[in-house]
Nucleic acid binder design. Structure first.
Lengths: 260, 260
DNA sequence: AGCTGTAACTTGGTCCTACAAGTGATCACG
DNA sequence: CGTGATCACTTGTAGGACCAAGTTACAGCT
């Protein structure tokens, strides 16, 4: 058999993973049930067992199925719609849950990198970058303040974007700037007077703070952002397994200094 | 070549992944440098390319290396000591960062499941479970309140454990109760009067709340826990990539009701 | 010097085989 | 009727082959 040339960006194993995910969420394989054996899947989809295994590995990493030597795989949970894009982009996430994303630009300027920003973006202090502060809303209600420093390469493209309504991620990707890796640090702080004003809440309310550094496929930093979510508006969810755990608990570092 | 019989629980590819991880953290392959090619690694470790690839896949999922068709893999970051065990167990985590874990039991009793607990643990409301409230400390300083509901199977073992000093996870594993999957939901709330008293902070301070459901390898729920961390004491970190993203952002659900 | 085209190298994807190790159900036997 | 041994099935690990597609470096040409 000739190895299929892969029609689009879709590999066979990713295709199958997607199909199985759907099959789980549409009730073909409800939680608690067992999946067909690797052999059967290979047979019925016309691919090799190794390819099937690769697809199943993905579902396992997502925490959707459990597997043990000797026994058929068990469906654990229904998949949540989630993707890297939804996580990085507020707009995409908002649309995916049926809300209307909105934003108000509070500040957009070219400036020199602070010490923290320089360290996180791999620049020298004072190197030029683009700094953007936005209040993000879900269907009119403010839920998050976003303070992002973009490296120049990405940031200069921002001038051409309608920041109030368009998705920065979408636009940047069209210009060949792709976000591939991200590191998120999550903790809790009390709302400052400034936060309270922008989010229309009382000062002191609990804020879920996410600091994020995103890089391109080569690992070069693209953005460093501090997002502050209204405490009771948003939650983060992680699934992990013995085999794979991308989540770490750490002592909080006081990188509080995100400049005015 | 006969496939090596695997000396311990260690598979070849996991062995190699571990070695590479060490090689990265000890500076052999510093961030920014490129790894040897799959072929070279296979050669020098005497294994097949497919096995090497499997090891490299793991590092990629951990966000340690970036890889692109055609070019050698690039080292992105140093590995953080992290493991599923450290994430689930406060004791293990504390020891791993060089602190002395401590705890004070506030409450331990057998009781009937509340509606929320029943749903999360797959029980009927009123079914017996074991409920444990502890204040956890790092080197004497309280940093977290842990309110955990164990299914009976796991919970009944608790009576034999010295809850103030021993690690519950360690002990339960010795009894054949293994935690294999977990789902964590993280948001921020303000400290209640009760929280403030137990954690020795002022009421209203920002609290990082982690709700967690852990299951055994078969996917059967073992525990459902709500942990409240002092906001400026602890942070969670997640790495993710285009290829894999176990982290989801969701609207906060008001599962606030963890009983008195 | 600068550019271009090509060849060698490198990773991505698919398929195959073989064997080890654990599970589950059947079946024969006491 | 229970019980234990057996065996087919299933997943885990390892090795290997082949080609596609992207990157890099170098040689040679202008």
């Amino acid at each position: 058999m000739a190895p299929t040339p892969a029609p689009e960006n879709s590999a066979l194993y990713r295709e199958l993973a997607m199909r199985l995910r759907h099959a789980i969420s549409d009730g073909t394989y409800p939680p608690g049930s067992r999946l067909p054996s690797e052999h059967e899947l290979a047979q019925s989809f016309g691919m090799a067992r190794s390819t099937v295994r690769r697809a199943l590995t993905i579902l396992g990493e997502d925490g959707l199925i459990a597997s043990h030597q000797g026994a058929r795989r068990t469906v654990l949970a229904e998949p949540r719609l989630q993707s890297f894009g939804e996580l990085r982009s507020f707009s995409r996430w908002a649309r995916s849950i049926g809300e209307v994303p909105g934003g108000r630009v509070d500040l957009l300027e070219r400036r020199g990198a602070s010490a923290v920003q320089a360290r996180e973006l791999g620049l020298a202090p004072g190197d030029p970058l683009v700094y953007l502060v936005r209040v993000r809303m879900l269907t009119g209600v403010p839920v998050m303040i976003e303070r992002t420093a973009y490296v120049e390469r990405a940031g200069l493209r921002l001038s051409f974007i309608d920041l109030e309504h368009e998705s920065i991620s979408d636009r940047l990707e069209e210009h060949g700037i792709v976000f591939a890796h991200a590191e998120h640090t999550i903790d809790a702080v009390n709302a400052s007077a400034d936060d309270a004003r922008l989010l229309e809440i009382e000062p002191g309310r609990a804020i879920l703070r996410e600091r994020r550094r995103a890089t391109d496929p080569q690992g070069r930093p693209l953005e460093w952002s501090e997002d502050r979510y209204v405490g009771d508006g948003v939650a983060f969810t992680i699934r992990n397994s013995l085999a794979m755990s991308p989540l770490t608990r750490g002592r909080a570092v006081s990188t509080t200094g995100n400049p005015p």
